[in-house]
Design a protein around this nucleic acid. Structure first.
Lengths: 101, 101
DNA sequence: CGTGTAAGGAATTCTGACACG
DNA sequence: CGTGTAAGGAATTCTGACACG
């Protein structure tokens, strides 16, 4: 389930280069709950490629003038929709294979 | 052809954590031509997940007592074998589909 | 609200060298 | 040969704050 894409290994300077966003912006989006880096033992933020992609989407929305609060709502909504789809898929698979929990 | 696995974005401290190797060892293996990190504008080494995997293999070999020169030869040999296979595959595909260059 | 910046400290990374074996 | 370490400098990252709007 977990892959290179989700492994948090990229420091903020590299993420800044990769996304074109300032470190200030990246930290601010975290403050607003849009992105969730992990921390090394020493407290340095580390991001995944997935995080980089999310940041690029955030950058697009921000350019359109969408506020961080709106962006967060959208992201939560998309997650809900995705969860619902997964639940349905799970239900169908269970019905088909009569899997036990 | 290129993916997250090959993107050089991980700094040496993280690589050290990921592999359990000291930074000294990692730099030394580069010196001996076993690993090829890129550099950021500022000169900091950056590695890919593929590099991390290569380093783990190197660590195994070293534990077996294999010297860096031997390890390098082995790696070059494996690459040659892989290249030969790819050439053959390419040849068969070309013959089958009569592809032009 | 979103972002820039100066501030000071702590941790990171780099290179070249000496050490040991 | 392979790896540790101390050395000094340069670049990174962190936090909390002030600024502007």
């Amino acid at each position: 389930m977990s892959s290179y894409k989700d492994k948090k290994v990229i420091t903020i300077g590299i993420v800044s280069e990769l996304t074109g966003l300032s470190e200030r912006k990246i930290r601010y989006y975290e403050e607003r709950g849009l992105i969730f880096p992990e921390r090394t033992k020493r407290g340095t933020r580390v991001y995944s490629f997935m995080d980089v992609e999310i940041l690029l989407k955030i950058a697009d929305k921000r350019e359109e003038g969408v506020q961080t609060g709106e962006i967060k709502k959208d992201m939560i909504n998309e997650k809900k929709k995705s969860d619902v789809r997964n639940q349905m898929l799970r239900g169908q698979l269970n019905a088909h294979f009569k899997m036990r929990k």
